[in-house]
């Protein structure tokens, strides 16, 4: 029986990789021809991808897809958003239903190597953290010995939690819930002292508390969750385009080019800026795009910093600090190769 199952699984895997391979090499042309980027997003996650009251999507994952559309088609609005659940996200990409998966997907070894997919980069460095009630007076996760902790069932979150407490040699009492919203309810009703989840989630939950200032997110991050866009393996031209859209946004922030000053920056004498905005060199052509590809991204969507602040940063209800997501020059780890 096991042999049969594994044989079927192997057959399916071959089929998956085969299908992915067969899609190769022409996504960029397909997108140009279709006049639309097809982008897989969540079915609703604050700050990352979420429909507003008129059904327009917003969020950092959504803005990244818009940036790709701006670069490839010159118009950030030419994106078709396909809401996907966690389970169907990779199939949708493998089968060609979407061109980019931009759906809070953690970059892991297994996903990168065995699914026929390529991770483009990291749009958001996330990590599992803890949120405690302020009245508890705890300032570090190391003080949490014996605490009762609300956690979502069957997630890596649960496993990371167990690992962390084992390593620290501390005891804890898990209070397990089926869904993240219930976890938040449990925390608020005092079923547990501590709530653990990815940090971005913690901030979203905190913003929904009756009194958001009554809870604090502890500084410790106990796991690495680099979230980023994904494309099909075997289509290097498209992979390059999507990768350099992200790098262009990061470079723009580093060079101080924003959606507000892009007009005057196109007249700049700084050679780095000239190369980026396309007044010098043929960077766009090398990607198979127009010369003003990066200028379009910045003018229509903004640089990385703007995208971050607008959706998840201090300008948004989530109020997540830049932290790891600050540029390397400002204490974070967001670093992009130069446009040269």
């Amino acid at each position: 029986m096991t042999r049969f199952v594994s044989a079927v699984a192997a057959g399916l895997a071959t089929l998956v990789v085969g299908a992915a391979g067969a899609q190769a090499a022409e996504t960029l042309d397909t997108v140009k021809e279709r006049g639309e980027v097809s982008c897989g997003v969540t079915t609703g996650l604050a700050g990352f991808s979420m429909p507003d009251q008129s059904g327009t999507w917003s969020g950092i994952d959504v803005d990244f897809c818009r940036a790709v559309a701006a670069a490839v088609l010159g118009d950030a609005s030419k994106v078709r958003f396909v809401p996907l659940t966690a389970k169907e996200r990779f199939t949708a990409l493998q089968s060609g239903e979407i061109d980019i998966l931009s759906r809070v997907t953690t970059w892991t070894f297994t996903r990168d190597t065995s699914l026929g997919l390529n991770f483009v980069g990291t749009t958001f460095y996330d990590g599992q953290g803890f949120m405690v009630n302020k009245d508890l007076g705890v300032s570090s996760a190391k003080d949490l010995d014996g605490a009762s902790i609300c956690v979502g069932a069957g997630t890596t979150t649960e496993l990371n939690l167990a690992d962390y407490f084992r390593i620290q040699g501390m005891d804890y009492n898990p209070v397990v819930f089926a869904a993240i919203s219930e976890t938040a309810q449990g925390f608020e009703s005092g079923r547990c002292d501590v709530l653990t989840s990815d940090q971005s989630q913690l901030y979203a939950i905190r913003s929904k508390l009756e009194d958001p200032s009554s809870a604090v997110v502890l500084p410790e991050v106990i796991s690495k969750e680099p979230l980023g866009p994904v494309v099909r393996q075997g289509d290097d031209a498209w992979f390059n385009v999507v990768k350099w859209v992200l790098f262009a946004q990061l470079n723009a922030e580093e060079l101080g080019v924003t959606s507000d000053n892009i007009e005057e920056m196109t007249g700049s004498d700084n050679p780095s800026i000239k190369r980026l905005v396309g007044t010098d060199g043929d960077m766009g052509e090398k990607l198979g795009l127009s010369a003003d590809w990066a200028a379009n991204i910045i003018a229509q969507v903004g640089n990385y910093g703007e995208m971050f602040e607008r959706n998840v940063g201090m300008d948004s209800p989530l109020e997540i600090a830049r932290g790891l997501n600050a540029l390397w020059s400002e204490g974070g780890i967001q670093y992009a190769p130069p446009v040269r």
């Binding site: 609703g44 996650l45 604050a46 700050g47 979420m50 209800p317 989530l318």
Partner: peptide
């Protein structure tokens, strides 16, 4: 749609 809307912070 309800579930997508209630996550709005």
């Amino acid at each position: 749609t309800v579930q997508a809307a209630i996550v709005d912070p």
